[in-house]
């Protein structure tokens, strides 16, 4: 049966990138425990709107945990307390009556706040632009079955490719490093024969781009792996390291 709970929310409000922000307190009353976290914010936003106030800005789109658009740090945990769950899939039944919930945006120099909980994540796209692809023009491909790929490699590649690019790894990392994100892409492509010709170039230019974008350095804190809503493993980071050394020390790439 539907249960309802009352909550105190402390939400980060910030009018714009250059503006100062602060935590504002709101009461969330009669919240159905069947609601998703984002639906709970919807409800607050409807209230705020009717009270003539500005609703809380937050990014979201698919609301089924696949687009990677949503995300906020809830009580110190990116995407909230449930393992392997995005914020849009987190349900209010995981909270108790009279809880206080602190909601903050992803915090990283590379992800400036746009407004309230919405942040600018184009740095992730920039890394992919630097080499997160296989250079194959449309039309030039051979028959799909001409290149066999072992099931193991395909599965490992799929594990890495499951990344939704939400940025929770950066938000969770004590150093705001983007290594898990980067390593997932490098790993996916390194595991396929198709990705090999460009492997060295890819590893070097993607890492270089990452370093320029203002992310921190990985120090193997493994918080990223623990918070990743798709549970992507840091074995990908080890693979990225190997790819990078191979490229840096043993290839002709500069």
């Amino acid at each position: 049966m539907t249960k309802t709970i009352n909550l105190t929310l402390k939400v980060w409000r910030q009018k714009g990138q250059k503006k100062k922000g602060r935590l504002e307190t709101y009461k969330a009353v009669d919240i159905s425990t069947d609601m998703s976290f984002l639906e709970m914010i919807d409800v607050i936003n409807e209230q705020l709107t009717l009270e003539g106030k500005e609703p809380i800005a937050f990014d979201h789109d698919c609301r089924e945990g696949i687009c990677g658009m949503c995300g906020a740090v809830v009580n110190g945990r990116p995407h909230g307390p449930e393992k392997g769950t995005t914020l849009c899939q987190l349900h209010m039944r995981h909270f108790s009556n009279n809880d206080t919930i602190v909601i903050e945006p992803w915090r990283s120099r590379a992800f400036p706040v746009i407004k309230d909980l919405a942040v600018e994540r184009s740095a992730l796209d920039r890394m992919i632009q630097a080499g997160g692809f296989i250079s194959v023009n449309t039309g030039g491909a051979q028959d799909a079955n001409a290149i066999p790929v072992s099931q193991e490699a395909a599965e490992l590649a799929m594990d890495a490719a499951a990344c939704i690019g939400c940025g929770a790894c950066v938000a969770a990392c004590p150093n705001a490093s983007a290594m898990l994100f980067l390593s997932a892409k490098v790993s996916q492509l390194a595991l396929f024969p198709q990705g090999k010709p460009e492997a060295a170039k890819r590893a070097i230019s993607m890492v270089r781009e990452m370093d320029m974008l203002g992310f921190g350095n990985c120090t193997n804190e493994t918080e990223c792996e623990a918070e990743c809503p798709k549970e992507i493993s840091i074995t990908n980071i080890a693979r990225l390291n190997r790819e990078f050394y191979k490229a840096g020390f043993f290839s002709a790439e500069k």
Partner: peptide, 19 residues
């Protein structure tokens, strides 16, 4: 560098068990 990578700190910080 890592200190600078997060200019605004979280007001609430909790580990997911990685650290």
């Amino acid at each position: 560098q890592n200190f600078k990578a997060r200019p605004v700190r979280y007001s609430m910080n909790k580990s997911a068990g990685g650290r």
